[in-house]
Design a protein around this nucleic acid. Structure first.
Lengths: 348, 348
DNA sequence: TTGAAAGCGTTACCAT
DNA sequence: ATGGTAACGCTTTCAA
């Protein structure tokens, strides 16, 4: 039936142990022996049995990447970069290949926990949690518990774009300085002369939403400018689209809109155009992240400290590395955020 | 150390076999016994060992979803829908949960095969291949071989958006009628009076690229209209952006552009706006797929036979189902495609 | 450098 | 309805 390691051993006239060693490549094996074994593998078209291997070794080659919204290019780019980083860390031989897979939580706390359990069940080699976290204490505790269990079981945990888990020191964290980024973004608009600025925020109770909004308000307060209207919504395009109507209803004289993320910003741009307003010119739009947004003809300023792609690669490496990660505390890579903003001054 | 099934059995004062039966829920167990077992599971915070389970049962709960570009919302939406469909088919209890994971091939044939091998190694329950396939005979053969191996090993294979594999009858296929869709799209533009139509095609040697281009040409030929300029490029935004410059260079009097996909169309729109051309009006843009594109202020006609989301759900169900799939031949769901086109007539 | 054999934690068949 | 117990296919000491 299905070819097993023993079959390969028999054909190569060696013991199963030797075949295993050849395949995993982390043990000295005579060149001639290796040769014979590899030939047998090819001839028999042998494929390692992952579950059996994982059971015996008490770890699998699965790496889970959890994202909040797989339909958002932001996560697509990050996940893709992480996958590459993970893939290339492999030796290329039968043994080292990792299977990086992305799991879509849809921003749902339950699904996040479900996926963590599923990955725990699979004895995943690593788990990367990408994107802002829910700020609900109960869910936070549940997540923290799961993550602790995971790392205790030998799964490497990497947090990317969300704050480190307070109690747990076993996870590597790659955090973005959302607050300061948001402040800079708004400062930039203020510097251009904008005084009536609308804000399209993310969903309430998300870390990114809160931090970015706080930074925005800091900038306004520092400049002594009154806060404009703010609307909350999901991190997607239609949210930006709908929020724009609301913002303009509340203040028809807005000269600029800050969007909590690039995807949202696209919706804002679209809504403005539908109303016959030019972007920028009548209204300037600024957003976060580093999507290929500029092609949407929004003149932009981009402060790139850590391009998304790099962040993803970094996260992937952290997940793979056995040296870089958590010394004995949370490793944080602070102050790295991508911001972009319109360069246009208000009209008149 | 780590809690095993035996520990649970001991605490619940039953045999390991019984615990297994309770967890998998596919065997009669006395209510009181089940009760005790579940309590023990909770108390010990037991998590099933996936690899061990997969080894013993000769199948895992992993479902792989291969996509060509995870950064493209098209695949995000499809993958997300498939994941939901797969997730909800689960019983919710410890046993039935499937782990739907998406793997990003980046359109690379090698990575596609690598992922298939990895999934084969994991003894995946199912594999869904989403999106157009490469038309290289060698790669086609290699893929076909892998898929055959997979289904022989009990992995359910579903093709979604790519043609069924000729030799193999074991895979379910959900195909979109790209050719006819493209024809309709161009017919629509012709009907509006457009006579100079540019075309931004996908990468050469992809099934979708060829089929859509063929449909486009059919429509032109039928109407006796000369073919306009055509530019090939990847299925992404910058491709549409760059292609537009090329198209306009070749024919500055274009009144419409057909993009081989919505993501590309966004790039086209952006490029046109950068040149001060209004969309539609100066130039109409038409694209495929059903992304939340309309918010980009392009008046659109949408011929929805099978919304993307539905296609994803359908694929997910096919992957899970043990009844729907391949009777004794390839099951094809034909003629389902999403097309959209600009409704504006040419100016003047 | 290679082989022998003891697990790894479940499942599923066979009894009871 | 429940228990006993061989597999399942690999990894990894321990010896040689």
């Amino acid at each position: 039936m299905t070819v097993t390691l023993a079959d390969v051993a028999a054909r190569a006239r060696v013991s199963p142990a030797t075949v295993s060693r050849v395949l995993n490549g982390n043990y000295p094996v005579a060149a001639s022996t290796r040769e014979r074994v590899l030939r047998a593998v090819d001839e028999l078209d042998y494929v390692l049995n992952g579950p059996a291997s994982a059971l015996a070794a008490a770890t699998s080659d699965l790496v889970g990447v959890l994202v909040n919204d797989i339909a958002d290019p932001f996560f697509g780019i990050m996940a893709s970069a992480a996958q590459s980083a993970i893939g290339e860390s492999a030796t290329g031989r039968g043994g080292g290949e990792k299977l990086a897979v992305v799991c879509n939580t849809g921003g749902s706390p339950e699904r996040e926990l479900t996926y963590l359990t599923l990955l725990q069940r699979q004895r995943a080699a690593a788990v990367i949690l990408m994107g802002g976290a829910l700020e609900d204490p109960e869910h936070l505790a549940a997540t923290a518990g799961k993550l602790t269990k995971l790392s205790e079981a030998g799964t490497r945990v990497v947090l990317c774009g969300r704050p480190p888990v307070p109690g747990d020191a076993s996870a590597a964290a790659l955090v973005f300085d959302n607050r300061s980024g948001a402040r800079q973004l708004t400062e930039h608009l203020l510097g251009l002369g904008h005084r009536r600025i609308g804000y399209v925020a993310g969903p309430t109770d998300r870390t990114t939403t809160r931090h970015r909004l706080e930074g925005h308000r800091e900038a306004l307060a520092a400049a002594g400018v009154a806060e404009g209207p703010t609307v909350h919504g999901p991190y997607d395009r239609s949210s930006g689209h709908e929020a724009t109507a609301e913002l303009l209803a509340r203040d028809p004289h807005l000269t600029a809109v800050v969007a909590a993320n690039d995807t949202v910003a696209l919706g804002v741009c679209a809504a403005l155009r539908e109303r016959g307003l030019s972007v920028p010119g009548d209204v300037s739009v600024a957003g976060f992240d580093d999507l290929p947004f500029s092609t949407d003809a929004v003149p932009s300023l981009t402060t790139v400290r850590l391009p998304l792609h790099e962040a993803g690669v970094r996260a992937g490496r952290l997940a793979m590395s056995t040296t870089e990660p958590p010394a004995d505390g949370v490793e944080t890579v602070p102050g790295e955020l991508v911001v972009r903003g319109s360069t246009a001054a208000p009209r008149g």
